[in-house]
């Protein structure tokens, strides 16, 4: 569905050139939740922006549904880390969810149904007329997720969506992602720097190195589909997997790569 092959990106040119993404290859298949995890500053956001068509990488092939990504493709939605910036402060919760639908030429009934269905899915019924400033951070991010759901994307990109909320809210939102994934049979690409989160949510984890970034490995997560914040995280398999991801991030086993320590600082 989403194919990334030998993606590279260099910022700047000449002497000041900075190789951010060295060689990234992976794919996302329909119905999968793939999480991308890597150390802070490893270019996760750059990677996601290139996939969303918000910027062009300097090299490599990106295709979505068989088409090369040159600008934001149809059928893609994104949830940003910065919900404050991403929600429109002058629109009520409902209007924020409605915002991207105007262009789609839906009937009034269809539109209303999508909006209310999405708000139900994220647990925000009763908050339709509130404005973003009247909601907590976690609730604001729920609005952003509801908006993406109502848009019915073929793929949902999430850029560290829960990095700015407190730990308790974060767990609730993680479970929300799992539940809407199941409910809408969504394909989701989830970027995070939190190892537990990446393993807990994903069917597959793509582990990235420090910059210049390459894919250290892609790891299948053979945990059951019914995950639970307490039980799953006690599961020895979960503990083994998170340990492995952590080790891979710290000590990439790829032999042909020397870790450029100077560049990290």
């Amino acid at each position: 569905m989403l194919n990334i092959e030998h993606l590279t990106h260099t910022y700047g040119t000449g002497a000041k050139a900075h190789l951010a993404l060295k060689d990234i290859t992976f794919a996302v298949e329909p119905g999968e939740l793939v999480s991308i995890v890597g150390p802070s500053g490893c270019g996760k956001t750059t990677l996601l922006r290139t996939m969303a068509g918000l910027m062009r990488p300097t090299g490599g092939d990106l295709t979505f549904l068989g088409n090369e990504i040159t600008s934001v493709p149809e059928g893609l939605a994104m949830v940003f880390q910065d919900y404050r910036g991403s929600l429109f402060p002058w629109l009520s919760v409902e209007s924020n969810v409605r915002f991207p639908l105007k262009r789609l030429g839906l009937s009034k009934a269809d539109l209303d149904a999508r909006v209310s269905e999405s708000l139900v899915a994220v647990g925000l019924t009763g908050f339709e007329d509130r404005f973003p400033f009247q909601l907590s951070g976690g609730m604001q991010q729920r609005v952003a997720i509801a908006r993406a759901l109502a848009y019915r994307p073929k793929i949902l990109l999430m850029d560290e969506p829960f990095a700015s909320v407190d730990a308790q809210t974060r767990e609730d939102l993680e479970d929300l992602v799992l539940s809407v994934k199941k409910k809408f049979n969504m394909t989701i690409l989830f970027v995070t720097h939190d190892i537990d989160e990446s393993v807990y949510l994903a069917d597959r984890v793509v582990v990235l190195s420090k910059p210049p970034t390459f894919v250290v490995t892609t790891l299948d997560i053979p945990l059951s589909d019914n995950r639970d914040q307490i039980e799953t995280k006690e599961d020895p398999e979960f503990i083994r997997l998170r340990g492995e991801v952590a080790r891979l991030i710290r000590h990439p086993k790829s032999d042909d790569v020397t870790i450029p320590v100077a560049d990290v600082a």
């Binding site: 910036g85 991403s86 991207p100 262009r103």
Partner: peptide, 21 residues
């Protein structure tokens, strides 16, 4: 907020659409 503009872009709003909305 640049994030607001990018959000609109990911929903494929045109330049004029972003300006107006």
């Amino acid at each position: 907020d640049p994030v607001a503009k990018e959000t609109a872009r990911t929903f494929r709003l045109s330049r004029v659409g972003i300006l107006a909305r």
